[in-house]
Design a protein around this nucleic acid. Structure first.
Lengths: 215, 215
DNA sequence: TGTACATCAGTGAACGCGCGTTCACTGATGTAC
DNA sequence: TGTACATCAGTGAACGCGCGTTCACTGATGTAC
Protein backbone atom coordinates (compact mmCIF):
# COMPACT_ATOMS: atom_id res chain seq x y z
CA UNK A 1 0.00 0.00 0.00
CA UNK A 2 1.67 3.20 -1.12
CA UNK A 3 0.93 5.81 1.45
CA UNK A 4 -0.34 8.88 -0.41
CA UNK A 5 2.22 11.55 0.38
CA UNK A 6 0.70 14.29 2.48
CA UNK A 7 -0.19 17.27 0.27
CA UNK A 8 1.70 20.36 1.29
CA UNK A 9 -0.29 23.55 1.90
CA UNK A 10 1.24 25.03 -1.21
CA UNK A 11 0.15 22.10 -3.31
CA UNK A 12 -3.31 22.29 -1.84
CA UNK A 13 -3.51 25.98 -2.62
CA UNK A 14 -2.33 25.29 -6.15
CA UNK A 15 -4.93 22.67 -6.94
CA UNK A 16 -7.60 24.78 -5.34
CA UNK A 17 -6.74 27.82 -7.41
CA UNK A 18 -6.61 25.76 -10.56
CA UNK A 19 -10.13 24.59 -9.76
CA UNK A 20 -11.24 28.16 -9.09
CA UNK A 21 -9.89 29.29 -12.46
CA UNK A 22 -11.77 26.51 -14.18
CA UNK A 23 -14.99 27.45 -12.45
CA UNK A 24 -14.74 30.98 -13.73
CA UNK A 25 -13.88 29.60 -17.14
CA UNK A 26 -17.07 27.55 -17.14
CA UNK A 27 -19.12 30.57 -16.17
CA UNK A 28 -17.61 32.46 -19.05
CA UNK A 29 -18.24 29.63 -21.48
CA UNK A 30 -21.82 29.32 -20.29
CA UNK A 31 -22.51 32.97 -21.09
CA UNK A 32 -20.39 33.56 -24.17
CA UNK A 33 -19.50 30.15 -25.57
CA UNK A 34 -16.08 28.61 -25.81
CA UNK A 35 -14.61 31.04 -28.35
CA UNK A 36 -15.27 33.89 -25.92
CA UNK A 37 -13.10 32.42 -23.21
CA UNK A 38 -10.29 34.78 -22.22
CA UNK A 39 -7.54 34.34 -19.65
CA UNK A 40 -7.36 38.05 -18.96
CA UNK A 41 -11.08 38.23 -18.35
CA UNK A 42 -10.91 35.33 -15.92
CA UNK A 43 -8.04 36.97 -14.07
CA UNK A 44 -9.95 40.22 -13.78
CA UNK A 45 -12.98 38.32 -12.50
CA UNK A 46 -10.81 36.75 -9.82
CA UNK A 47 -9.26 40.06 -8.88
CA UNK A 48 -5.80 39.26 -10.05
CA UNK A 49 -3.57 40.29 -12.91
CA UNK A 50 -3.57 38.47 -16.22
CA UNK A 51 -0.10 36.96 -16.17
CA UNK A 52 -0.77 35.40 -12.77
CA UNK A 53 -2.80 32.66 -14.42
CA UNK A 54 0.29 31.42 -16.22
CA UNK A 55 1.37 29.93 -12.91
CA UNK A 56 -1.55 27.53 -13.29
CA UNK A 57 -2.03 27.01 -17.00
CA UNK A 58 0.73 27.34 -19.52
CA UNK A 59 -1.60 28.72 -22.20
CA UNK A 60 -5.19 29.35 -23.12
CA UNK A 61 -5.16 26.16 -25.16
CA UNK A 62 -4.08 24.10 -22.21
CA UNK A 63 -6.94 25.50 -20.17
CA UNK A 64 -9.48 24.65 -22.86
CA UNK A 65 -8.09 21.16 -23.26
CA UNK A 66 -8.34 20.73 -19.51
CA UNK A 67 -11.97 21.87 -19.61
CA UNK A 68 -12.76 19.38 -22.35
CA UNK A 69 -11.04 16.69 -20.31
CA UNK A 70 -13.11 17.60 -17.27
CA UNK A 71 -16.33 17.67 -19.25
CA UNK A 72 -15.73 14.17 -20.58
CA UNK A 73 -14.74 12.94 -17.15
CA UNK A 74 -17.77 14.48 -15.54
CA UNK A 75 -20.09 12.95 -18.09
CA UNK A 76 -18.41 9.58 -17.72
CA UNK A 77 -18.77 9.81 -13.95
CA UNK A 78 -22.42 10.77 -14.26
CA UNK A 79 -23.22 7.91 -16.58
CA UNK A 80 -21.28 5.42 -14.49
CA UNK A 81 -22.90 6.59 -11.30
CA UNK A 82 -26.31 6.07 -12.86
CA UNK A 83 -25.29 2.61 -14.03
CA UNK A 84 -23.88 1.78 -10.61
CA UNK A 85 -27.19 2.87 -9.13
CA UNK A 86 -28.88 0.17 -11.16
CA UNK A 87 -30.16 2.33 -14.01
CA UNK A 88 -31.06 0.63 -17.27
CA UNK A 89 -30.70 2.23 -20.71
CA UNK A 90 -33.69 4.49 -20.07
CA UNK A 91 -32.17 5.63 -16.81
CA UNK A 92 -28.87 6.42 -18.50
CA UNK A 93 -30.78 8.43 -21.07
CA UNK A 94 -32.44 10.52 -18.42
CA UNK A 95 -29.13 11.03 -16.65
CA UNK A 96 -27.58 12.14 -19.91
CA UNK A 97 -30.31 14.69 -20.56
CA UNK A 98 -30.12 16.09 -17.05
CA UNK A 99 -26.39 16.46 -17.42
CA UNK A 100 -26.75 18.23 -20.75
CA UNK A 101 -29.41 20.63 -19.49
CA UNK A 102 -27.28 21.53 -16.49
CA UNK A 103 -24.80 23.29 -18.72
CA UNK A 104 -25.60 23.24 -22.44
CA UNK A 105 -22.34 24.88 -23.47
CA UNK A 106 -20.43 22.17 -21.65
CA UNK A 107 -22.34 19.60 -23.68
CA UNK A 108 -21.53 21.47 -26.87
CA UNK A 109 -17.88 21.72 -25.92
CA UNK A 110 -17.82 17.95 -26.31
CA UNK A 111 -20.43 17.20 -28.93
CA UNK A 112 -20.96 20.53 -30.66
CA UNK A 113 -19.34 22.30 -33.58
CA UNK A 114 -15.76 21.11 -33.85
CA UNK A 115 -12.98 23.67 -33.99
CA UNK A 116 -11.29 23.01 -37.32
CA UNK A 117 -7.79 21.72 -36.73
CA UNK A 118 -8.22 20.94 -33.05
CA UNK A 119 -7.47 17.39 -31.98
CA UNK A 120 -8.16 16.16 -28.49
CA UNK A 121 -5.27 14.43 -26.73
CA UNK A 122 -5.27 10.70 -26.21
CA UNK A 123 -6.50 10.49 -22.65
CA UNK A 124 -9.61 12.44 -23.63
CA UNK A 125 -10.43 9.90 -26.30
CA UNK A 126 -10.00 7.20 -23.69
CA UNK A 127 -12.53 8.82 -21.39
CA UNK A 128 -14.89 9.05 -24.34
CA UNK A 129 -14.59 5.30 -24.83
CA UNK A 130 -15.32 4.84 -21.16
CA UNK A 131 -18.70 6.42 -21.75
CA UNK A 132 -19.41 4.21 -24.73
CA UNK A 133 -18.41 1.12 -22.82
CA UNK A 134 -20.81 2.06 -20.09
CA UNK A 135 -23.59 2.44 -22.64
CA UNK A 136 -22.67 -0.94 -24.05
CA UNK A 137 -22.99 -2.62 -20.70
CA UNK A 138 -26.44 -1.17 -20.23
CA UNK A 139 -27.42 -1.99 -23.80
CA UNK A 140 -26.49 -5.59 -23.28
CA UNK A 141 -28.93 -6.16 -20.46
CA UNK A 142 -31.71 -3.74 -21.28
CA UNK A 143 -33.35 -2.03 -24.21
CA UNK A 144 -35.21 -3.34 -27.16
CA UNK A 145 -33.94 -4.94 -30.30
CA UNK A 146 -34.51 -2.49 -33.12
CA UNK A 147 -34.09 -3.37 -36.78
CA UNK A 148 -32.49 -6.71 -36.06
CA UNK A 149 -32.12 -7.55 -39.74
CA UNK A 150 -30.36 -4.37 -40.78
CA UNK A 151 -27.21 -4.94 -42.87
CA UNK A 152 -25.29 -2.40 -40.78
CA UNK A 153 -24.86 -5.11 -38.18
CA UNK A 154 -22.23 -6.82 -40.30
CA UNK A 155 -20.26 -3.58 -40.31
CA UNK A 156 -20.67 -3.19 -36.57
CA UNK A 157 -19.58 -6.73 -35.90
CA UNK A 158 -16.49 -6.12 -38.00
CA UNK A 159 -15.57 -2.77 -36.42
CA UNK A 160 -15.77 -3.08 -32.69
CA UNK A 161 -12.54 -1.57 -31.39
CA UNK A 162 -14.59 1.04 -29.58
CA UNK A 163 -16.19 -1.71 -27.52
CA UNK A 164 -12.82 -2.35 -25.92
CA UNK A 165 -12.87 -5.75 -24.28
CA UNK A 166 -16.50 -5.50 -23.27
CA UNK A 167 -18.47 -8.44 -24.61
CA UNK A 168 -21.02 -7.22 -27.11
CA UNK A 169 -22.86 -8.89 -29.93
CA UNK A 170 -24.00 -6.95 -32.98
CA UNK A 171 -27.40 -6.26 -31.45
CA UNK A 172 -25.83 -4.70 -28.39
CA UNK A 173 -23.41 -2.59 -30.42
CA UNK A 174 -26.27 -1.44 -32.59
CA UNK A 175 -28.49 -0.56 -29.65
CA UNK A 176 -25.77 1.43 -27.88
CA UNK A 177 -24.92 3.31 -31.03
CA UNK A 178 -28.51 4.21 -31.84
CA UNK A 179 -29.04 5.23 -28.24
CA UNK A 180 -26.16 7.63 -28.52
CA UNK A 181 -26.85 9.13 -31.93
CA UNK A 182 -30.62 9.43 -31.56
CA UNK A 183 -30.52 10.98 -28.15
CA UNK A 184 -27.77 13.30 -29.28
CA UNK A 185 -29.96 14.28 -32.21
CA UNK A 186 -32.85 15.29 -29.98
CA UNK A 187 -30.65 16.81 -27.29
CA UNK A 188 -28.54 19.00 -29.52
CA UNK A 189 -31.60 20.32 -31.33
CA UNK A 190 -33.24 20.98 -27.98
CA UNK A 191 -30.24 22.79 -26.53
CA UNK A 192 -29.93 24.92 -29.65
CA UNK A 193 -33.55 25.95 -29.25
CA UNK A 194 -34.83 24.48 -32.49
CA UNK A 195 -37.81 22.72 -30.91
CA UNK A 196 -38.94 25.66 -28.83
CA UNK A 197 -38.88 27.73 -32.00
CA UNK A 198 -41.35 25.23 -33.44
CA UNK A 199 -43.62 25.21 -30.41
CA UNK A 200 -42.70 21.66 -29.42
CA UNK A 201 -41.83 20.33 -25.98
CA UNK A 202 -38.34 18.80 -26.09
CA UNK A 203 -39.00 16.65 -23.01
CA UNK A 204 -41.81 14.87 -24.83
CA UNK A 205 -39.67 14.20 -27.87
CA UNK A 206 -36.77 12.97 -25.80
CA UNK A 207 -38.99 10.66 -23.79
CA UNK A 208 -40.48 9.34 -26.98
CA UNK A 209 -37.14 8.50 -28.55
CA UNK A 210 -36.12 6.85 -25.33
CA UNK A 211 -39.26 4.74 -25.44
CA UNK A 212 -38.54 3.69 -29.00
CA UNK A 213 -35.17 2.43 -27.85
CA UNK A 214 -36.14 0.69 -24.67
CA UNK A 215 -39.80 -0.18 -24.58
CA UNK B 1 -46.69 41.92 -65.12
CA UNK B 2 -44.22 44.19 -63.36
CA UNK B 3 -41.29 44.67 -65.66
CA UNK B 4 -38.15 44.02 -63.58
CA UNK B 5 -36.32 47.35 -63.71
CA UNK B 6 -33.10 47.01 -65.58
CA UNK B 7 -30.20 46.69 -63.12
CA UNK B 8 -27.73 49.53 -63.48
CA UNK B 9 -24.04 48.62 -63.85
CA UNK B 10 -23.41 50.00 -60.41
CA UNK B 11 -26.10 47.83 -58.88
CA UNK B 12 -24.74 44.83 -60.70
CA UNK B 13 -21.26 45.54 -59.43
CA UNK B 14 -22.62 45.98 -55.92
CA UNK B 15 -24.43 42.66 -55.80
CA UNK B 16 -21.46 40.93 -57.37
CA UNK B 17 -19.04 42.30 -54.81
CA UNK B 18 -21.39 41.39 -51.98
CA UNK B 19 -21.37 37.85 -53.31
CA UNK B 20 -17.61 37.88 -53.57
CA UNK B 21 -17.27 38.98 -49.98
CA UNK B 22 -19.56 36.19 -48.87
CA UNK B 23 -17.54 33.64 -50.77
CA UNK B 24 -14.39 34.66 -48.99
CA UNK B 25 -16.33 34.61 -45.74
CA UNK B 26 -17.35 31.01 -46.37
CA UNK B 27 -13.79 30.04 -47.11
CA UNK B 28 -12.73 31.57 -43.86
CA UNK B 29 -15.49 29.84 -41.92
CA UNK B 30 -14.61 26.53 -43.53
CA UNK B 31 -11.04 26.75 -42.31
CA UNK B 32 -11.40 28.51 -38.96
CA UNK B 33 -15.05 28.22 -37.96
CA UNK B 34 -17.54 31.00 -37.59
CA UNK B 35 -15.92 32.71 -34.58
CA UNK B 36 -12.77 33.23 -36.63
CA UNK B 37 -14.52 35.26 -39.27
CA UNK B 38 -12.97 38.71 -39.60
CA UNK B 39 -13.91 41.58 -41.90
CA UNK B 40 -10.37 42.87 -42.05
CA UNK B 41 -9.05 39.47 -43.00
CA UNK B 42 -11.60 39.18 -45.80
CA UNK B 43 -10.68 42.63 -47.07
CA UNK B 44 -7.01 41.76 -47.11
CA UNK B 45 -7.78 38.54 -48.95
CA UNK B 46 -9.61 40.56 -51.59
CA UNK B 47 -6.82 43.06 -51.88
CA UNK B 48 -8.74 45.98 -50.47
CA UNK B 49 -8.70 47.97 -47.29
CA UNK B 50 -10.79 46.97 -44.29
CA UNK B 51 -13.25 49.86 -44.17
CA UNK B 52 -14.17 49.28 -47.82
CA UNK B 53 -16.35 46.35 -46.79
CA UNK B 54 -18.61 48.66 -44.86
CA UNK B 55 -20.02 49.77 -48.21
CA UNK B 56 -21.48 46.29 -48.50
CA UNK B 57 -22.22 45.16 -44.98
CA UNK B 58 -22.98 47.52 -42.15
CA UNK B 59 -21.27 45.31 -39.58
CA UNK B 60 -19.72 41.94 -38.97
CA UNK B 61 -22.98 40.80 -37.40
CA UNK B 62 -24.95 41.68 -40.50
CA UNK B 63 -22.56 39.63 -42.60
CA UNK B 64 -22.92 36.61 -40.35
CA UNK B 65 -26.68 36.92 -40.30
CA UNK B 66 -26.62 37.08 -44.08
CA UNK B 67 -24.50 33.93 -44.21
CA UNK B 68 -26.93 32.12 -41.94
CA UNK B 69 -29.75 33.31 -44.14
CA UNK B 70 -27.98 32.01 -47.24
CA UNK B 71 -27.18 28.70 -45.62
CA UNK B 72 -30.83 28.13 -44.73
CA UNK B 73 -31.93 29.23 -48.18
CA UNK B 74 -29.42 27.00 -49.86
CA UNK B 75 -30.46 24.00 -47.82
CA UNK B 76 -34.11 24.73 -48.49
CA UNK B 77 -33.41 24.98 -52.21
CA UNK B 78 -31.47 21.73 -52.16
CA UNK B 79 -34.20 19.87 -50.37
CA UNK B 80 -36.91 21.33 -52.56
CA UNK B 81 -34.99 20.56 -55.71
CA UNK B 82 -34.66 16.95 -54.61
CA UNK B 83 -38.38 16.80 -53.85
CA UNK B 84 -39.21 18.39 -57.19
CA UNK B 85 -37.07 15.75 -58.84
CA UNK B 86 -39.34 13.11 -57.40
CA UNK B 87 -37.23 12.10 -54.41
CA UNK B 88 -38.92 10.31 -51.55
CA UNK B 89 -37.86 10.60 -47.89
CA UNK B 90 -34.80 8.47 -48.52
CA UNK B 91 -33.81 10.68 -51.42
CA UNK B 92 -34.18 13.79 -49.28
CA UNK B 93 -32.00 12.18 -46.67
CA UNK B 94 -29.24 11.53 -49.16
CA UNK B 95 -29.52 15.08 -50.49
CA UNK B 96 -29.26 16.39 -46.94
CA UNK B 97 -26.12 14.41 -46.25
CA UNK B 98 -24.48 15.47 -49.46
CA UNK B 99 -25.24 19.07 -48.66
CA UNK B 100 -23.80 18.74 -45.16
CA UNK B 101 -20.62 17.05 -46.34
CA UNK B 102 -20.06 19.74 -48.96
CA UNK B 103 -19.33 22.26 -46.24
CA UNK B 104 -19.53 20.97 -42.68
CA UNK B 105 -19.03 24.36 -41.09
CA UNK B 106 -21.98 25.68 -43.06
CA UNK B 107 -24.09 22.89 -41.63
CA UNK B 108 -22.88 23.72 -38.15
CA UNK B 109 -23.59 27.39 -38.66
CA UNK B 110 -27.24 26.37 -38.79
CA UNK B 111 -27.47 23.31 -36.58
CA UNK B 112 -24.34 23.48 -34.47
CA UNK B 113 -23.43 25.07 -31.19
CA UNK B 114 -25.64 28.13 -30.71
CA UNK B 115 -24.02 31.45 -29.94
CA UNK B 116 -25.48 32.41 -26.54
CA UNK B 117 -27.68 35.44 -26.93
CA UNK B 118 -27.90 35.36 -30.70
CA UNK B 119 -31.38 35.25 -32.18
CA UNK B 120 -31.98 34.74 -35.87
CA UNK B 121 -34.27 37.27 -37.53
CA UNK B 122 -37.79 36.34 -38.59
CA UNK B 123 -37.23 35.60 -42.23
CA UNK B 124 -34.58 33.03 -41.35
CA UNK B 125 -37.04 31.19 -39.16
CA UNK B 126 -39.45 31.22 -42.07
CA UNK B 127 -36.94 29.58 -44.37
CA UNK B 128 -36.35 26.99 -41.68
CA UNK B 129 -40.07 26.17 -41.69
CA UNK B 130 -39.90 25.87 -45.44
CA UNK B 131 -37.48 23.01 -45.00
CA UNK B 132 -39.68 21.32 -42.45
CA UNK B 133 -42.72 21.68 -44.67
CA UNK B 134 -40.83 20.04 -47.48
CA UNK B 135 -39.93 17.15 -45.20
CA UNK B 136 -43.56 16.90 -44.20
CA UNK B 137 -44.71 16.59 -47.78
CA UNK B 138 -42.29 13.79 -48.39
CA UNK B 139 -43.14 12.12 -45.10
CA UNK B 140 -46.82 12.08 -46.03
CA UNK B 141 -46.33 10.01 -49.14
CA UNK B 142 -43.30 7.91 -48.27
CA UNK B 143 -41.53 6.42 -45.32
CA UNK B 144 -42.53 3.86 -42.82
CA UNK B 145 -44.76 4.21 -39.80
CA UNK B 146 -42.56 3.94 -36.75
CA UNK B 147 -43.91 3.58 -33.22
CA UNK B 148 -47.48 4.28 -34.21
CA UNK B 149 -48.78 3.89 -30.68
CA UNK B 150 -46.36 6.29 -29.00
CA UNK B 151 -48.04 8.82 -26.72
CA UNK B 152 -45.96 11.64 -28.21
CA UNK B 153 -48.40 11.68 -31.11
CA UNK B 154 -51.00 13.41 -28.99
CA UNK B 155 -48.51 16.16 -28.31
CA UNK B 156 -47.60 16.41 -31.98
CA UNK B 157 -51.23 16.58 -33.02
CA UNK B 158 -51.77 19.39 -30.54
CA UNK B 159 -48.68 21.41 -31.53
CA UNK B 160 -48.52 21.66 -35.25
CA UNK B 161 -47.87 25.32 -35.99
CA UNK B 162 -44.61 24.36 -37.61
CA UNK B 163 -46.53 22.36 -40.20
CA UNK B 164 -47.95 25.62 -41.54
CA UNK B 165 -51.01 24.89 -43.62
CA UNK B 166 -49.61 21.65 -44.97
CA UNK B 167 -51.99 18.77 -44.26
CA UNK B 168 -50.35 16.31 -41.89
CA UNK B 169 -51.71 13.72 -39.53
CA UNK B 170 -49.84 12.73 -36.40
CA UNK B 171 -48.04 9.88 -38.16
CA UNK B 172 -46.68 12.25 -40.79
CA UNK B 173 -45.61 14.84 -38.24
CA UNK B 174 -43.90 12.13 -36.26
CA UNK B 175 -42.11 10.69 -39.26
CA UNK B 176 -40.81 14.06 -40.44
CA UNK B 177 -39.60 14.93 -36.97
CA UNK B 178 -37.79 11.65 -36.44
CA UNK B 179 -36.29 11.94 -39.88
CA UNK B 180 -34.88 15.30 -38.95
CA UNK B 181 -33.61 14.57 -35.46
CA UNK B 182 -32.20 11.12 -36.19
CA UNK B 183 -30.37 12.11 -39.32
CA UNK B 184 -29.09 15.21 -37.59
CA UNK B 185 -27.85 12.98 -34.78
CA UNK B 186 -25.81 10.84 -37.15
CA UNK B 187 -24.72 13.72 -39.34
CA UNK B 188 -23.47 16.00 -36.61
CA UNK B 189 -21.52 13.20 -34.97
CA UNK B 190 -20.08 12.30 -38.34
CA UNK B 191 -19.06 15.85 -39.20
CA UNK B 192 -17.45 16.30 -35.82
CA UNK B 193 -15.39 13.19 -36.44
CA UNK B 194 -16.76 11.10 -33.59
CA UNK B 195 -17.40 8.02 -35.70
CA UNK B 196 -14.07 8.05 -37.45
CA UNK B 197 -12.45 8.23 -34.03
CA UNK B 198 -14.25 4.99 -33.24
CA UNK B 199 -13.29 3.25 -36.45
CA UNK B 200 -16.84 3.29 -37.84
CA UNK B 201 -17.98 4.22 -41.30
CA UNK B 202 -20.45 7.13 -41.07
CA UNK B 203 -21.98 6.32 -44.46
CA UNK B 204 -23.08 2.91 -43.21
CA UNK B 205 -24.63 4.34 -40.10
CA UNK B 206 -26.43 7.04 -42.00
CA UNK B 207 -27.78 4.59 -44.54
CA UNK B 208 -28.93 2.35 -41.73
CA UNK B 209 -30.87 5.10 -39.96
CA UNK B 210 -32.39 6.06 -43.26
CA UNK B 211 -33.51 2.48 -43.79
CA UNK B 212 -35.07 2.35 -40.35
CA UNK B 213 -37.12 5.39 -41.29
CA UNK B 214 -38.15 4.42 -44.77
CA UNK B 215 -37.90 0.72 -45.35
C1' DT C 1 14.22 29.42 18.44
C1' DG C 2 16.53 32.09 15.18
C1' DT C 3 18.92 32.94 11.01
C1' DA C 4 20.07 32.25 5.88
C1' DC C 5 18.53 30.73 1.89
C1' DA C 6 15.47 28.81 -1.72
C1' DT C 7 11.04 28.51 -3.59
C1' DC C 8 7.19 30.26 -5.48
C1' DA C 9 2.82 33.49 -6.10
C1' DG C 10 1.62 37.50 -7.99
C1' DT C 11 2.50 42.32 -10.04
C1' DG C 12 3.11 45.90 -13.51
C1' DA C 13 5.09 47.21 -17.64
C1' DA C 14 5.65 46.04 -22.12
C1' DC C 15 5.26 43.79 -26.89
C1' DG C 16 2.96 42.88 -30.95
C1' DC C 17 -1.10 41.91 -32.76
C1' DG C 18 -5.68 42.04 -34.87
C1' DC C 19 -10.09 43.35 -34.23
C1' DG C 20 -14.52 46.35 -35.42
C1' DT C 21 -15.56 50.71 -36.62
C1' DT C 22 -15.55 56.01 -37.72
C1' DC C 23 -14.14 59.72 -40.52
C1' DA C 24 -12.48 63.00 -43.79
C1' DC C 25 -10.72 62.50 -48.13
C1' DT C 26 -9.75 61.39 -53.36
C1' DG C 27 -10.97 59.91 -57.60
C1' DA C 28 -13.83 57.60 -60.69
C1' DT C 29 -18.49 56.83 -62.54
C1' DG C 30 -23.03 58.19 -63.69
C1' DT C 31 -26.76 61.94 -64.55
C1' DA C 32 -28.97 66.29 -66.13
C1' DC C 33 -29.08 69.93 -69.06
C1' DT D 1 -21.45 66.27 -77.62
C1' DG D 2 -19.83 68.74 -73.90
C1' DT D 3 -20.05 70.69 -69.39
C1' DA D 4 -21.52 70.89 -64.31
C1' DC D 5 -22.86 68.45 -60.70
C1' DA D 6 -24.13 64.50 -57.74
C1' DT D 7 -23.28 59.93 -56.43
C1' DC D 8 -20.68 56.47 -54.79
C1' DA D 9 -16.38 53.11 -54.21
C1' DG D 10 -12.40 52.83 -51.97
C1' DT D 11 -8.30 54.71 -49.16
C1' DG D 12 -5.45 55.79 -45.19
C1' DA D 13 -5.20 57.44 -40.71
C1' DA D 14 -6.95 56.99 -36.41
C1' DC D 15 -9.51 55.33 -32.08
C1' DG D 16 -10.11 52.30 -28.45
C1' DC D 17 -10.03 47.91 -27.28
C1' DG D 18 -8.77 43.32 -25.65
C1' DC D 19 -6.17 39.58 -26.53
C1' DG D 20 -2.13 36.05 -25.41
C1' DT D 21 2.17 36.09 -23.72
C1' DT D 22 7.10 37.41 -21.87
C1' DC D 23 9.90 39.39 -18.45
C1' DA D 24 12.19 41.44 -14.58
C1' DC D 25 10.74 42.33 -10.29
C1' DT D 26 8.80 42.27 -5.11
C1' DG D 27 7.31 40.09 -1.25
C1' DA D 28 5.64 36.33 1.17
C1' DT D 29 6.05 31.43 2.44
C1' DG D 30 8.51 27.35 3.34
C1' DT D 31 13.06 24.73 4.38
C1' DA D 32 17.70 23.65 6.43
C1' DC D 33 20.88 24.16 9.86
Amino acid sequence: MTAARRETPRERYRTQLRAEIKEHAWEQIATAGAPGLSLNAIAKQMGMSGPALYRYFSSRDELITELIRDAYRDLADTVRAAAAGGADLAGLGRALRTWALTDPQRYFLIYGTPIPGYHAPDDVTQTASLIMECLLDAARSSGRDVADDDPVRAHLAAHRQWAGDHPADAATLHRALLFWSRLHGILSLELAGHFTGMGLDPAELFASELRALTR
